[in-house]
Design a protein around this nucleic acid. Structure first.
Lengths: 141, 141
DNA sequence: TTGCATTACATGACACAGCATGTATCTTTG
DNA sequence: CAAAGATACATGCTGTGTCATGTAATGCAA
């Protein structure tokens, strides 16, 4: 494992950072976050008709790697709101990419699972997602 | 100027970073960005009835430090869309925090300026903004 | 000067997120 | 067991963002 590259920047120690430093830091983060998110969204939208948050949910369901993945499980893994998740899953289900079915042991819960089409789309989309991220977040960028 | 603190983490060199590294990096950025944005928004909303993007515009107008700051000038400084800016300025104007007046030399343009109340609110809000950022983005957090 | 492209800003239509709340189902407590 | 509270999810309402377009003013070419 080759040695290390220090990413971003090296900052002055905490007590020495001025307000301007903190604000510049924040603005820079904001700029890069929003730009990257927009690029991801565009790439996914154009190629797979998926929004970024839609893909993210698809990805989390895929990662769960179980047919017994509930909404609750997912919502714990994403910064998304429970209600936002509910609607995203709704869209994905309507698009035929995943299924919602009642959990038998707890009938309040819903199991969420990829359909075969969902899995197929996810595989291709994840490739694009990785590529965009690699080019956006690479230290040389 | 005291010596340095390396923020975030030290990553493996580029060519060695796996997809999982890149994705984890992204998710971490996303998480912290969204959390910080939410905290800023909440603090500004509760104390000054200002959304984050509203404050950001107020701040940019203040920073321009000229009575001849146009919408165009501002839009070049923010990741916001021109149409989003238009609406934000609209809200701020309705709230009495800034004024829009026609530019005499180019009547397509609008000069945007803080009202005295806008300046006063900005001063207080910027303090809170800085405080939240300092606690959110400090290396110890 | 006239005609066309460009620029600055506003706005209508729509998509999506959040909050508050509703409904159904557990769970706990007395 | 009954009643009260907690939990899982859905949904109405609203605010804010984007895209596409509209309107007015300006610049530029012939």
């Amino acid at each position: 494992m080759k040695c290390c590259v220090i990413r971003y920047a090296v900052f002055m120690s905490t007590t020495q950072r001025t307000d301007a430093d903190v604000i510049d830091d924040w603005r820079e983060r904001q700029r890069t976050y929003l730009a990257t998110a927009a690029n991801l969204d565009r790439a996914l939208e154009q190629n797979f008709d998926l929004g970024l948050s839609e893909f993210e949910i698809l990805d989390l369901v895929w990662e769960s790697n179980t047919p017994e993945c509930t909404m609750r499980d997912i919502v714990d893994l994403t910064p998304m709101t429970q209600s936002a998740l509910s609607r995203v899953v709704d869209r994905l289900a309507r698009a035929g990419l995943l299924t919602r079915e009642e959990c038998t042991t707890d009938r309040r819960s819903m199991f969420v699972a990829l359909t075969s089409e969902g899995a197929s789309v996810h595989t291709k989309a994840r490739k694009v997602y990785r590529e965009v991220l690699a080019s956006e977040l690479s230290p040389t960028a």
